[in-house]
Design a protein around this nucleic acid. Structure first.
Lengths: 129, 129
DNA sequence: CTCAAAAATAGTAATGATTACTGTTTTCGA
DNA sequence: TCGAAAACAGTAATCATTACTATTTTTGAG
């Protein structure tokens, strides 16, 4: 049975208010303003809980720590090869990919995750100089 | 300047011969048959080197250790939610996705990585019982 | 409201994957 | 054949995350 916790509430509302795909560490540093004694373990436990309940999304960018996103709608992410920033991609979800992949496959395909890579707007400009 | 090494040769040929997307640990255990004194660090260093040179592919499956693949052609992977197995997906590469993603995006998109999730053929059968 | 069981917490230790460091060995071109 | 550069083995360290434990918080029944 799930019980309310002020810490979880604070973590969730931080994510709701900041769509920057923060890491657990970033969430920790910020929620600490409200709960100076919160422990990193509590942040991880609640992020996992929220993700398991489907209230937030976990993004695993191939390298570096996982990111979290309050936007649970199926959408894609961009990851900057230079600075690691994670940005939302404004593009419709390609549900047909799952069917295309299932054609020659004997198992069951339920979903897919796509990450786009390249240079974010800022790093792109820096490279021009 | 890159110098030849018997250890790197052995790692590369293990990958060439086994298209099972092994982890660094699995490569280590197997190459150890030929080089009993090889260290895990050497395996990691050479896998990174080969990946940087574009001779092998690194697959980061969101959870668990990275996998390596001698097949560098752009292709997709399936990851079993139950057992973690990584399998090749027989499906053409969707190059147009990069362009679609770039439309509303101010940075530069060079490539994308897509992982399909679900149940592998074996776990699917096990679930039926 | 009170109180106790269940859940959550803080603090800390442990784990797993990977990288970094160091002294020795191997490679390879002059 | 010889010496600089690169790679090595072995080990220590790092990073992200999970596990453990004693204490505190939540919540529903009386």
């Amino acid at each position: 049975m799930l019980k309310y916790s002020r810490q979880r509430e604070s973590i969730k509302s931080y994510l709701d208010a900041h769509r920057t795909h923060p890491t657990a560490e970033t969430v920790y540093q910020n929620v600490r303003q409200e709960f100076p004694n919160i422990s990193l373990g509590t942040v991880y436990r609640n992020l996992n809980l929220l993700a398991d309940m489907g209230e937030i999304l976990r993004i695993s960018p191939g390298s570096g720590p996982d990111r979290y996103d309050a936007d649970c709608s199926p959408h894609y992410h961009f990851i900057c090869k230079e600075c690691g920033t994670v940005l939302d991609i404004d593009m419709e979800h390609q549900a047909q990919l799952d069917k295309a992949a299932a054609k020659q496959f004997d198992g069951t395909i339920t979903n897919h995750v796509t990450h786009f890579f390249g240079l974010c707007p800022e790093c792109k400009n820096t490279k021009l100089l």
